[in-house]
C-alpha cells in the first residue's frame, strides 16, 4: 500500500497533474473535501469509487468545467485554477477526454467528430483533417465507411470507440476517461480497455480514468486510487489493491453490501 494522500512522497519528476486541498460543494452537499492527488508523467491512474462520490466532479474541476471553492490544480507545475481566455485554451489543448456517453456531436458526421479538435486549432485543412480522422478511426478498429455515418447510426460500443478516436486525435499529453466501459457488454468493455491501453501507450499520454468497473481498473491502471467522502482514502498499485488492508477498498472491490460504506436505503 502507498500513502493515504495520493503519492506526494514521489518527489520527482514534477507531477503531470497535482491536486491539493481541492474542495467543491453543491449547496449543503460536500462533494470534494480537501482532495489530494498526484498523477506522474506517462502514468495511468484510475480513480474508483461509488456513484456520487465526486469522481466526475474531480475531472470536471481539472478541466475548468466546474469551479472548486478552494484548493490548487497544477498541470506540469503550473497553477490552472482561475485561468481564463487564451491561457486556459492553451492548457486545454493538452487534454483529450472520452466521455461516459461518448458526447459525440449529433450534427456532424463521425469523421468530423474525430477531426473536431484538429479543425478547431485551424492548423490543418479539412482534407488533411479527414485523412487523420480516418487514420484514428482505423486505430480503434473502425473502417473508413464509418466516418461518413451519423453518430446516431452507431452502437454504444462504436460510439465509445469514436469517442476514443476523438480523444487521441490531437495527440494530447493528458487523456481523461470517464466511465469508459459503462453500458457495454463485458466483451466490448474489454475491447475498449485494450484500446485504451494501446492508445495511451501509442500517444505516450498521461491517463486519469474514473470508473466503478474493477475489471477495467485492473486492466488500464498503473495505480488505483479510491475516493470516498470527497477524499482519496487509498492509493496503490494494481498488485497491492487485493491486500490493501483498507476496509473501504475491500468492500468496494468485492462488491459487498456489508461494510463501512453504507448506502442510504429506506428499509422496508
Amino acid at each position: 500500500m502507498t500513502d493515504h494522500a495520493g503519492g506526494p512522497e514521489r518527489m520527482s519528476p514534477t507531477p503531470k497533474i497535482s491536486l491539493r486541498g481541492l474542495s467543491k460543494r453543491f449547496g449543503p452537499k460536500v462533494v470534494l473535501d480537501n482532495l489530494d492527488l498526484d498523477v506522474m508523467p506517462g502514468e495511468s491512474v484510475v480513480v474508483i469509487g461509488g456513484s456520487g462520490t465526486g469522481k466526475s466532479v474531480m475531472l470536471k474541476s481539472i478541466l475548468g468545467l466546474l469551479k472548486p471553492e478552494s484548493g490548487s490544480i497544477k498541470i506540469d507545475g503550473q497553477e490552472v485554477l482561475g485561468l481564463r481566455g487564451s491561457d486556459r485554451d492553451e492548457v486545454l489543448r493538452k487534454f483529450g477526454m472520452l466521455f461516459q456517453g461518448g458526447a459525440l456531436f449529433d450534427s456532424l458526421p463521425v469523421w468530423e467528430n474525430v477531426a473536431f479538435g484538429l479543425l478547431a486549432s485551424g492548423d490543418i485543412s479539412r482534407k488533411d483533417a479527414k485523412v487523420v480522422a480516418l487514420e484514428n478511426l482505423r486505430s480503434v478498429g473502425l473502417g473508413p465507411e464509418v466516418g461518413e455515418l451519423s453518430p446516431a447510426e452507431l452502437s454504444g460500443g462504436m460510439q465509445k470507440r469514436v469517442g476514443l478516436a476523438r480523444a487521441i486525435a490531437t495527440r494530447p499529453e493528458i487523456i481523461f476517461f470517464d466511465e469508459p466501459t459503462t453500458g457495454l457488454d463485458p466483451i466490448m468493455g474489454d475491447v475498449i480497455n485494450d484500446l485504451i491501453v494501446e492508445c495511451v501507450k501509442t500517444v505516450g499520454a498521461t491517463a486519469l480514468s474514473i470508473t466503478h468497473d474493477m475489471a477495467s481498473a485492473r486492466k488500464i491502471a498503473d495505480r488505483i486510487a479510491m475516493i470516498f467522502g470527497g477524499k482519496i482514502i487509498w492509493i496503490g498499485t494494481v498488485d497491492e489493491i487485493d491486500n490493501s488492508g483498507n476496509p473501504y477498498v475491500d468492500q468496494f472491490i468485492h462488491g459487498r453490501a456489508e461494510g463501512p460504506i453504507q448506502m442510504d436505503l429506506l428499509k422496508p
Binding site: 470536471k60 478541466l63 475548468g64 468545467l65 485554451d89 486545454l92 489543448r93 487534454f95 483529450g96 477526454m97 466521455f99 461516459q100 456517453g101 458526447a103 459525440l104 456531436f105 449529433d106 473536431f116 479538435g117 478547431a120 486549432s121 476523438r166 490531437t170 481523461f176
Partner: peptide, 17 residues
C-alpha cells in the same frame, strides 16, 4: 438542452472550442 445533458457542450470545451 440535449447537448447540455449529453455532455456535448462540455466536450466542446475540452476540444478548445
Amino acid at each position: 438542452g440535449t447537448m447540455r445533458v449529453t455532455e456535448q457542450i462540455d466536450a466542446l470545451t475540452t476540444l478548445s472550442t
